[in-house]
Simulated assay, not measured.
Amino acid sequence: MGRSADFDAFYDATSRRVLHQLYALTGDLEQARQCTQEAYARAWRQWPAVSAATSPEAWVRTTAWRLAPGRRIAVKRPAKRPSTRAARTPGGGSADLVAALRKLPERQRYAIVARLIAGAAVADIATETGASVATVENRLAKARATLARILPDDTAVLTGGHRV
């Protein structure tokens, strides 16, 4: 396959999943769409290097997350009630879960979304974030504990049947 066909296949296989992950990270569907679109545009421009990466999908997810405007500020503000628009999540995800994720500190939120929604291994998250495996495990434990307190039992299930 040529460069274009390889990228097209990658985009088709991953773009919806990355959009869902970005929505879970940002809590804003339009922002998630814009950041995801720009991350894929950057991946296209750098496709030879991106396609050689250990996980091109992780590269796109990390790039999209770094593009999210005000992501640090959003963590410090109290979470807003989901609007009617926010409640319509990609793939029918839970607005309650997204609101709960927004209450986590940024690094915990990234770790839990990458692990439980994206299915990334702890070692891969450590590489993506420049943290040690022990630090990522600690962030995951804290995120799970916080989410368990915030979410009622019936909404504590994440993608793939993982309990928080």
Rank of each mutant, 00 (worst) to 15 (best):
A143H: 02
A43G: 10
L29M: 07
R144E: 12
V133W: 01
F7M: 04
F7Y: 12
D8G: 10
D153C: 09
D8S: 15
E137N: 12
Y23Q: 09
A5Q: 12
G92S: 09
D6N: 14
T26P: 08
T84H: 12
D28F: 07
P90R: 01
S132M: 02
L25T: 06
T127V: 13
R66M: 09
T155F: 02
R102K: 14
G27V: 08
R33A: 06
A43F: 06
G70E: 11
W59Q: 06
R85W: 06
K103I: 01
T14S: 05
A143F: 04
T146Q: 14
R139A: 08
T26A: 09
Q108Y: 02
P69E: 11
D96T: 12
A43W: 02
R144D: 03
S94F: 03
R163E: 09
D8C: 09
S55A: 13
L67R: 04
T63N: 11
W65G: 07
M1H: 13
Q108E: 15
K142C: 03
T26S: 13
D153G: 14
V113H: 00
L25I: 15
M1W: 12
A134C: 11
R81D: 15
V164C: 05
W44T: 11
H162E: 06
A58M: 14
R61C: 09
V136C: 02
P48K: 05
A87E: 14
G119F: 09
G70M: 07
A156W: 03
G92Y: 06
I112R: 00
T36R: 08
D8R: 12
L67M: 14
F10H: 10
Q37D: 15
G70H: 11
T155R: 11
E30G: 08
L116V: 13
T129Q: 06
A79V: 15
A148V: 14
R3Q: 12
